[in-house]
Design a binder for these strands. Structure first.
Length: 544
RNA sequence: GCCCUUGUAGUUCAACAGGAUAGAAUGGAGGAUUCCUAAUCCUUUGAUCUGGGUUCGAUUCCCGGCAAGGGUACCA
């Protein structure tokens, strides 16, 4: 509907010979008195045309040709806004469209034929996923879903490194636990992994091999068992949230097939590097990065993490994605400018890379901060959180705020207040409609598909129709901003509009005509609720 | 020190590209059901950290403070 208004406005402007270079902007009005849509174009034009905005507005409005089926009226408000009021007919038209397209309603084809990759979580397999990872996991998966809903073909990728120092420490921690189980009086160093999951891993090694490796701390069995077990646990946890990755990309493979060396050679060729103090440095600043960085160490003969990161992104380009989304926690925000600079140095156009930085979750327990550290095992795992509140609430809570907000997650609240949860409010709206439909069945009322849409005319009903029609705009907004919280906000709004309608009006009445048209309406609401919930990976129950 | 992100009702968060009277939820106070699920609805209470600037207009942009989180390694 917003596009229709935009078209009408565009046509009008060209009729009176006004041309603007910027795209025409129309907003949803914030206040009902300002109509459904409004534009500030007269205010923007006042400088160009050197005329007062109100006069421009009048010229525009006078030239808008009448569209009685769409526009009820157009108003001008100082200092120069034009407000559009939709006709009931325009608002009502959404019902038919929703019923026709059903579970496909709201999809857009803006990403049709385009490939996107979303990289997220990417935690090294050193321990169970924490609540902090949870936010990224849910955000990443939801963003992927949003892209899919907009027509993209999407791959979810998990990048990990099982070769670094962290993994050596993990292996050694496992070895110590193994020794302890065998009765030796070894102590775990403070900076090693303390979690109980390591003991479980060690137990399995004892069961299988006895004391065969008691003096063999270098044996790969420790690192490998730990890695395998931890990865299985990570995958299982993600699966509980309905998150499945298409690909796991191992950093080590970048070394194995020479990609790292190749990138370094290329960078040297482009004169993007220089040697200093025996190390190889990257002229990051020259390519839009922050400051020059070491790519190859002198003290040890190996790369810093920036080089494989660049090489990894080169593979993303080579794999031919039209859109590359990188999701990082705030602790990684210093890295990506250098990676992008490296890619630019290699001649890639980085405009297809969208780097999203999300802030951390502050975990509180009755107002008190809980510090999270994998090594010290003072974390609450994601898995435990799912045990407590369930998948739907975890998914919803992690995306209900903008990713830049320093999200506060109160454990007590999530548990004890689950009754007054926004998730239930939403799901309840869906369940209520299902219940109405069940009742219609019992009463022998059949939905004929023939209805007089003009009967949907009460204020609460028109508001509900208006909100219903906004869904498509929200899907596009989410795609453009890659911010899922617009969707949760919208669904709350839709549920509110429905609950209000429900308290004011009955669906199943003695009036057959009215019953039919209201059935059509609530069916449409049910579809949009279900589609929205599906999009964020939350279930839409028929009973509660 | 420097860099990034953030600062909005008592609390947790919105405000989509600088728009009009800053929205929700929760908490507090009061109310609604002979009828499709009261996990609902209605009324009321209450906020832009601070000082300047840009302009028709600033929560939004710029500069200076203050505060929180993160970074600033030849750690990932």
């Amino acid at each position: 509907m917003i596009d229709t208004i935009k078209e009408i406005l565009k046509e009008t402007l060209s009729n009176i010979n006004i041309f603007i270079d910027k795209p025409i902007k129309i907003d949803r009005s914030r206040h009902p008195e300002h109509g459904h849509f409004s534009t500030n174009i007269p205010l923007l034009l006042t400088k160009v045309l050197k005329r007062p905005p109100m006069a421009i507005a009048q010229d525009i409005v006078r030239s808008i040709s009448p569209h009685p089926d769409i526009i009820l009226k157009v108003e001008i408000k100082p200092p120069g806004f034009i407000n559009f009021f939709l006709s009931p007919k325009a608002l009502q038209s959404v019902v038919k469209e929703v019923l026709k397209t059903g579970s496909e309603y709201g999809r857009s084809d803006q990403g049709k034929g385009l490939n996107a990759q979303v990289e997220f979580v990417s935690a090294n397999p050193t321990g169970p996923l924490t609540v902090g990872h949870g936010r990224q996991a849910v955000l990443g998966d939801t963003i992927a879903r949003i892209l899919e809903w907009n027509g993209y073909s999407v791959e979810r990728e998990y990048y990990y490194n099982d070769a670094g120092r962290q993994m050596r420490i993990l292996g050694y921690s496992t070895y110590i636990r193994y020794r302890q189980l065998l009765g030796y009086d070894d102590k775990i160093p403070d900076d090693h992994y303390q979690g109980d999951y390591i003991v479980d891993i060690a137990k399995k090694i004892v069961e299988k091999y006895g004391d065969r490796f008691k003096a063999d701390h270098d044996n790969n069995i420790f690192k490998n068992s730990a890695e395998q077990t931890v990865f299985e646990d990570i995958s299982k946890t993600l699966k509980r949230l309905d998150i499945v990755f298409d690909q796991f990309y191992n950093e080590k493979s970048l070394y194995d097939d020479g990609k790292i060396d190749h990138v370094l050679i290329k960078l040297k060729e482009k004169n993007a590097t220089y040697e200093k103090d025996g190390a190889i440095w990257f002229r990051s600043g020259k390519y839009g990065g922050t400051e020059d960085r070491v790519l190859w160490k002198s003290v040890v003969n190996e790369a810093t993490y920036r080089l494989p990161d660049i090489a990894y992104h080169v593979t993303k380009f080579k794999r031919g994605y039209d859109l590359i989304v990188d999701l990082f926690g705030a602790d990684h925000h210093a890295t990506y400018p250098d990676v992008l600079a490296g890619l630019r140095a290699l001649g890639y156009d980085t405009s297809s890379v969208k780097v999203l930085i999300h802030q951390f979750v502050t975990l509180t327990k009755s107002g008190e901060k809980v510090k999270m550290s994998t090594r010290k095992a003072t974390y609450v795992t994601l898995s435990e959180l799912i045990d407590e509140v369930g998948k739907d609430i975890v998914r919803y809570f992690f995306i209900m705020r903008g990713m830049k907000s320093h999200l506060n997650f109160d454990l007590e609240l999530a548990k004890t207040e689950s009754e007054e949860n926004p998730v239930f409010y939403l799901q309840y709206a869906h369940a209520r409609i299902s219940s109405i439909l069940r009742n219609a069945d019992t009463k022998g009322i059949k939905f004929t598909g023939v209805y007089d849409i003009s009967l949907l005319k009460e204020p609460e009903t028109l508001t509900l129709l208006d909100v219903l029609g906004e869904f498509k705009e929200i899907v596009l907004l989410c795609k453009e901003t890659l911010e899922p919280h617009h969707l949760t906000n919208y669904l709350q709004k839709l549920a509110t509009a429905f609950h209000k309608f429900y308290t004011e009006h009955r669906v199943l009445t003695d009036d057959e005509e009215l019953t039919q048209v209201r059935l059509a309406l609530v069916k449409a609401v049910k579809i949009v609720l279900a589609n929205g919930l599906h999009l964020i990976g939350v279930s839409a129950p028929d009973r509660m």
